[in-house]
Every structure is written in structure tokens, then in C-alpha cells.
């Protein structure tokens, strides 16, 4: 077995982590995570703009996890929990690095790759126009997501999004997204 999610989590956390969570992503948990992030971000940044940005990005990332993460592959759910996701916020050079990870089925890899590549290819003004277009013309999905989450995250991020898919099995990948906020 090549991919070990616990090892990846430990690697991502490394040093200088100020918030880390790995486990089930359910509604009550989201509330607790956001409360904790809000509390801890006061300790690591005096800049309210930075704190708001981090909070906003985490709100959206947790919503994305809540609505879109796939159940963990069979055999892992007993140890990880069925709705497993990870969130790590750490300092890295002049940035806060916000990492979000979850299992996705293999058929989503192409869609996500293309979506992020498209978002990364756009300027801030183009992202703004795309956001407004989707806001105005696309209906909400039954899950309540509007396809706006990633675009909103990219608008608030101070660098291009980084992402990676770690192969777990034929049917599953572990999807990792990194977002940066300047300190």
C-alpha cells in the first residue's frame, strides 16, 4: 500500500502549525472547528483582514468538504471515520498555508483538475466576472452549493491554488488543496 493518510497528515502538519484537524466532517464538528480557528487566529495574527480571510476560506472549504467529500474507501472507515477530511493551517515563510484534504472517487479527478486549472489561469478581474456570472445565472444545486466555493476561495487567496491527487486505489484518490494567505 503506497499511500498512508496519517503519514501525509503528519507531514503536512510539520512545525509551526496553529490549527490542525483530521476526522469526520459533520455539521456539529464544523461549528467547533470554526470556533477554534477564530479563537486561535487571534493568537497568531493581529491583522483583522488576515484573520477574516482565513476564516472565510475555512468556512468555504468546510462547506466544500461537507457537501462534496466522498466516503472513505472501504477498510479505512473504521479507523478514520466515514466522512474523513483534514484541515491544517500553518505558517510558512511570509504566508499562512491552509491545507484541506479528503478522499475523492477517481471519476472526479479530471473534473477537479480542469476546474482548478481554469481558475488558476484567470486574473483577479476575470475571477470576479466568473463569480458574478455564476452567481447571477446558475441555479443552486440540491446540495446548496452553487459552484462558487472554489472561485471564492481563489479570490481570497493571495497566491494561485496548489493541488495534488495522491492515488490510493483504482477507485480512490486523496485530494489535497493548498491555499495561501499573506501574513
Amino acid at each position: 500500500m503506497g499511500f498512508d493518510v496519517n503519514q501525509l497528515y503528519a507531514e503536512i502538519c510539520g512545525d509551526d502549525v496553529f490549527f490542525a484537524y483530521a476526522g469526520n466532517i459533520v455539521s456539529e464538528q464544523i461549528n467547533l472547528i470554526l470556533e477554534e480557528i477564530e479563537k486561535k487566529s487571534v493568537e497568531v495574527s493581529t491583522n483583522i483582514k488576515v484573520r477574516k480571510k482565513i476564516y472565510n476560506i475555512m468556512v468555504e472549504s468546510l462547506q466544500n468538504l461537507f457537501h462534496h467529500l466522498d466516503d472513505v474507501p472501504e477498510g479505512l472507515s473504521e479507523t478514520l471515520g466515514k466522512r474523513y477530511g483534514m484541515i491544517v493551517i500553518k505558517r510558512e515563510g511570509g504566508d499562512f498555508r491552509l491545507t484541506v484534504g479528503n478522499f475523492v472517487s477517481a471519476d472526479k479527478v479530471k473534473f477537479l483538475t480542469e476546474k482548478i486549472a481554469k481558475i488558476n489561469s484567470l486574473s483577479n478581474d476575470e475571477l470576479k466576472e466568473m463569480y458574478k456570472f455564476i452567481l447571477n445565472y446558475q441555479k443552486l444545486s440540491s446540495k446548496g452549493g452553487g459552484g462558487l466555493g472554489l472561485i471564492d476561495i481563489a479570490r481570497k487567496s493571495d497566491k494561485k491554488l496548489e493541488y495534488r491527487f495522491y492515488p490510493y486505489s483504482d477507485r480512490y484518490y486523496f485530494y489535497r488543496l493548498d491555499i495561501f494567505v499573506s501574513i
Binding site: Y55, V59, E60, N136, G145, G146, D152
Partner: peptide, 12 residues
């Protein structure tokens, strides 16, 4: 103070 993208459509 904050709103998420799923609220953004409803606010519209």
C-alpha cells in the same frame, strides 16, 4: 460579517 457562497445566491 461573513457569508458563504451558498448564502450568496439566496441573498441575491
Amino acid at each position: 460579517e461573513y457569508f458563504n457562497t451558498s448564502s450568496s445566491k439566496c441573498i441575491l
